[in-house]
Amino acid sequence: MVEFSSADASRSFRSRWPRWLGPTLLSALLLVSGVPRLPAQEPAQQEWIVISGGPALRFFEHGKADSHDKYWGNFIRAAVARLGQLKLQAEGKPGIVITWLVYRPAYASRSREEKLDILPEIVEQANALKVPLLWFDTTDQLINYLNAGQDRKIMPIGALDYFGHSNRACLMFDYSTYFDNMSKGCLHEKDLRLIERKAFLRRAMVKSWGCHSGEDFSLWWKRRFGVPMVGAVGRTDYATASLPYLSKGAKWNQ
């Protein structure tokens, strides 16, 4: 901000610049720097969402040097760990609803392959946590839920965590489930425009726990929603029974 020490200086400034220039410059400055944000008033209600992608089929992954998803529950137990954390954080805050979204087809396929009842096990986990569980079968269903699963004017999304396969440009809810090395149900960074900007709280906590999201997807996310997404530059590892950790040389980015 420029300050003028005397009335003379002010007068000389005015004399040199036309009157309309001041407001015009101010408007241009505002446009360039972005509209200043008023301190966001914390809404009375918000939804915290955890998304679990699904595992690969062993039929496709068996025998590969870099074989994925030997255990079907990587993205379930990591989500359960996160849901436990969120529940603790939400204690004493009655306006917070925690929801768990799980990509059902991948678990149904893996159930058939391994002759296990995986879906009831996931339901059991949700019941134990007392968290509402919602299956989704397509990316459209997920986008629809993010946009309108709750009235987002009243209950915006305050937190979003993603557990699943991903690369730098895409969250893959399935990988090697229907197609070897490929994904049928995914959210590409170019499709973020399908999600309403206003679905998210301005101070929402968003994190992808998959690999490489911090390399490009996070940038597209921030550009679209104005809300940062924490993502990994490098790979993440689900080998522990808790939250995934960064592989060697990887780091979080947003």
Binding site: D66, S67, H68, D69, K70, Y71, N74, G164, H165, S166, N167, R168, M172, Y175, G210, C211, H212, G234, R235, T236, D237, Y238, A239, P244, S247
Partner: peptide, 11 residues
């Protein structure tokens, strides 16, 4: 290649 999805080191 390192962009392959999630790795599980312990089979």
């Amino acid at each position: 290649d390192s962009t392959s999805p999630v790795s599980v080191t312990d089979p």
